[in-house]
Design a protein around this nucleic acid. Structure first.
Length: 569
RNA sequence: GCGCCCGUAGCUCAGUGGAUUAGAGCGCUGGCCUCCGGAGCCAGAGGUCGCAGGUUCAAGUCCUGCCGGGCGUACCA
């Protein structure tokens, strides 16, 4: 908390006889910067003290005016608008960032706590579509955000490498596949086989029976089925690694559903014995009559398991292994019911930690206003999007004068860093719950508050610092930083730690993404109004410190989103 | 039918722990490079916050009903 805000809370507290902790959260900003730096609405006090808010505001203005960090306080109806000592504010913000450096805003909230995040978790034999980016980007960013807040974070890729879909794949391969074609075009060929099987099985329902039979054989340990399964998994994982490298996404643990094969039968036994699960219509289910939910199927009438069975096992496994404080499932909103049932089932098993399971849902990705369907081919592949974004970035680089300083190799690297980040930012700059309609012209527009805009702003500041060439001065005359753009930039920088915490609380990287867009805008306004290099030395030094501080926050913010922060572009 | 999510500017969206005049980007119109990077900056036009009630001194925000869209709702994940 900055000193001025603390002083406002304390002085108001002294006058009103209310604890400062009750006042602090009420302090906001006035609608117009011209009115002051902070505002204190008095409605809550009025209710408690049974007096008119305007009257209280008037008194508080008088009380606050005497503060050390406060240069003016005016009542405006039920509000007190407060102007603080800008030099002190500037000193507070900049010295905090300069001394913290890369660790600015780092918190110890999460000390001693572990968070497991299940994200990306793609299904084998399906190339990533742009829709797969959502879970991957959200989870990756949440991982970074929680790490920044001091949590130990375990990133889990719960691969969809088990289930009846493998029966489908094996049956399809046996009918139409060839080793040669799969080796040549790996995941895309597997995908074609999968699609063809689904199409043909609509005309011929017997095919579905064939697929189920193959999955049954797989679960029973049939060597032929296992061999093919292993091969398909390996081919797919290789392709996934390509995406993850490009996106800069890493996992602590890549552990597919198949890892829980041996734990499922004992778990089902246990659930039956405890009377939590029961047989119904040939299947084994966990009923939720009291909760008013449909039952959760954990074993089909064929005797095979389903993903819910494996999710139960994985939750238990992760708790036993990591003792998590929370486990986040970054999975689309369509699976809400499933996760509700999952947590309830584990609660019935007597696990108190079941309350720590959190479904972090997100809306679906549409393409041309329609739901993407990998089966029907109405789909945009992630590789295609990244490729086009990188190409576009490359062509823009070639039109920019400043970029001629880059070597050919550097240009390629920048094109990749910026092109990929543009796609990530486009995804993370909207709140999770909305459906997103994918449109090429929107994703590939790098004007305005886009990923490249934030990166460009960072590179601009990097350019100034490079040209400055000296180390960042430590003795500064903060009072020289009094331009309105300097003040609003400093205030914006001060918000960063709060925004990161907020993002973590809401599981919303979007909060950071939106903040970064605003910060970049503030930086560019400053840049346009305030020259840095060549100014009178003490002013130049002060502005350099501001530039450096802004660069640190931009870079950190980009990292929290899983984006790159190139020094030149 | 029931449950969850969504409905704010032409488009994409913030704002939904009530509170000073509802914000941003795109697109459109018009300005700004002798000056640290124009992927930039400035200005303008553009709104019955889905509809109707209710609670409140105060509602885009809370409650109820309705309309429109999406998803889920027992053997897919």
């Amino acid at each position: 908390m900055n000193l001025a805000v603390r002083e406002i809370a304390e002085r108001a507290s002294g006058h009103l006889g209310l604890p400062p902790q009750e006042i602090y959260p009420l302090i906001t900003s006035p609608p117009d910067e011209g009115l002051g730096d902070y505002a204190l609405p008095c409605f809550a006090f009025a209710q408690k003290l049974r007096r008119s808010p305007a009257e209280i505001a008037k008194e508080l203005a008088d009380v606050l005016r005497g503060g050390q960090h406060i240069v003016n306080a005016e009542s405006a109806g039920p509000y007190v608008n407060i102007t603080v000592d800008r030099a002190k504010l500037m000193q507070y913000v900049l010295s905090g960032i300069l001394s913290g450096g890369e660790n600015y805003g780092r918190e110890s909230d999460g000390a001693g706590k572990t968070i497991v995040i299940d994200y990306s978790s793609p299904n084998i034999a399906r190339p990533f579509s742009i829709a797969h980016l959502r879970s991957t980007a959200l989870g990756n960013s949440l991982k970074r955000i929680y790490e920044h807040l001091g949590y130990r974070v375990v990133g889990v890729n719960h691969l969809g490498d088990w289930g009846v879909q493998f029966g489908t794949l094996i049956a399809a391969y046996n009918r139409w596949g060839s080793q040669e074609r799969v080796e040549q075009d790996s995941i895309y060929e597997l995908f074609r086989l999968y699609v063809r099987f689904n199409e043909e099985s609509e005309r011929d329902p017997m095919l579905k029976e064939e697929a189920r039979a193959w999955f049954k054989r797989l679960e029973d340990g049939d060597p032929e089925a296992l061999k093919l399964w292993k091969w398909f998994v390996d081919e797919s994982v290789q392709a996934f690694q390509r995406y993850y490298e490009l996106l800069g996404v890493e996992f602590t643990e890549i552990r597919g559903e198949s890892a829980y094969r041996d734990q499922m039968a004992p778990l089902i036994e246990d659930l039956l014995q405890k009377g939590i699960a029961k047989e119904s219509q040939g299947a084994i289910v966990i009923p939720f009559e009291e909760e008013g939910l449909t039952p959760l199927i954990i074993r089909t009438k064929d005797g095979t398991t389903v993903y819910a069975t494996r999710d139960l096992c994985s939750a238990i496994h992760h708790y036993e292994k990591y003792g998590f404080h929370k486990k986040l499932y970054v999975v689309d909103a369509g699976q809400s019911l499933h996760f509700k049932q999952l947590a309830l089932a584990l609660g019935k098993l007597g696990y108190p930690w079941a309350t720590g399971l959190v479904h972090v849902p997100f809306g679906v990705m549409l393409f041309e206003d329609q739901r993407m369907s990998t089966r029907r081919g109405h789909v945009v592949f992630l590789e295609e999007v990244l490729k086009r974004s990188i190409e576009l970035t490359r062509s823009i680089i070639d039109t920019i004068k400043k970029s001629s300083e880059l070597t050919e190799k550097e240009k390629e690297q920048v094109a990749q860093d910026v092109g990929v980040s543009a796609i990530v930012y486009a995804d993370l700059s909207r709140s999770r719950t909305h459906d997103i309609n994918f449109r090429w012209d929107e994703v590939l527009n790098f004007n305005g508050q886009s990923g490249p805009y934030v990166q460009y702003t960072h590179a601009r500041l990097a350019g100034v610092l490079r040209k400055y060439g000296k180390s960042i001065p430590s003795e500064l005359t903060y009072s020289l930083l009094s331009h309105p753009q300097e003040i609003s930039l400093a205030k914006c920088l001060e918000e960063f730690p709060m925004k990161v915490k907020h993002a973590a609380e809401e599981y919303e990287p979007f909060v950071v993404a939106g903040y970064l867009g605003n910060l970049a805008a503030s930086v560019n306004q400053f840049y346009d109004n305030c020259r840095v290099l060549g100014e009178e030395p003490s002013l130049e030094e002060a502005r350099i410190a501001l530039v450096y501080s802004a660069k640190i926050v931009l870079k950190k913010g980009l990292e929290l989103l899983g984006m790159k922060a190139p020094e030149r572009m």
